[in-house]
Amino acid sequence: MACFIIGAGSFYGLPVPVRDTDTVIAADGGWRVCRELSLTPSLLVADFDSLDTVPEFDHILRLPVEKDNTDMIRAVKEGFARGETEFHLLGGMGGRRTDHTLANMQTLAYIARHGGRGWLYGSGERFTAICDGGEIMLPAKKSGILSVFCLGADAEGVTIEGAQYPLADAALTADFPLGVSNHFTGKAVRVAVRRGCLLIGICDKE
């Protein structure tokens, strides 16, 4: 099972098909995308700053406009409450709101720290995060860009294996982009971190 959360940002298509066993949550303006895709979400989470009207729908979690949680991260919390651990965040990048893109990248760290795996999708690119002893194996690709960033406090014990530029027990900091623009070389790539959190970006184009 997986949880698809569709937000109000730029939508670049479904990365994988939505199965009957998957959960779909619309985050505010993501409701319109669900309608266009003929998807009926399990829940609409919204403060309705991206929708002109409140739709006639039985499963709405209405949020106050003034709040600490973004619509997206509250939708993630609802997904965790339903037992989900795999999250696909769509409509969470692009558009006019770079601040929301950054907030959704932070949301990936929230997912990782709570034992889940999250993916945030853009145009020909996707991001995920690993934290505190986490690791990820990325399938072999003949080409493409791999970037690894420190997300928060200094990341220690960073390992990258199988990419053009490997790292072993290295440190990454938030003020120097050492991990940007690595390359896939046809091998599977392993990324791991002993302490701290990493944001991992994969771009299909060189």
Score class of each variant (00 low, 15 high):
A174R: 14
L51C: 00
Q106G: 11
I60W: 04
H59Y: 07
A2V: 01
G162M: 09
E56W: 05
E86H: 07
S143M: 09
D28E: 00
G186V: 12
T107A: 13
V189P: 02
T21H: 15
V33M: 13
A46P: 02
V16E: 15
A46G: 07
F149T: 07
L63E: 03
V191L: 04
V18K: 00
V191G: 02
L108H: 02
A140I: 08
L14E: 13
G116P: 01
A171L: 10
T23G: 05
L120G: 01
E125L: 06
G95L: 08
P177Y: 09
L138T: 00
N182Y: 10
M1E: 08
G115F: 04
S42K: 14
R113N: 03
V24W: 04
K141F: 07
D204V: 08
G122R: 01
P41W: 04
I73V: 14
D204Y: 05
R19A: 15
H183S: 14
R126N: 02
I136N: 00
A8S: 14
G7K: 05
V45G: 02
G95S: 13
L172C: 12
M93H: 07
S181C: 12
N104A: 07
A174C: 14
D47P: 00
L39Q: 01
A155G: 09
R35T: 02
M93W: 03
G186A: 12
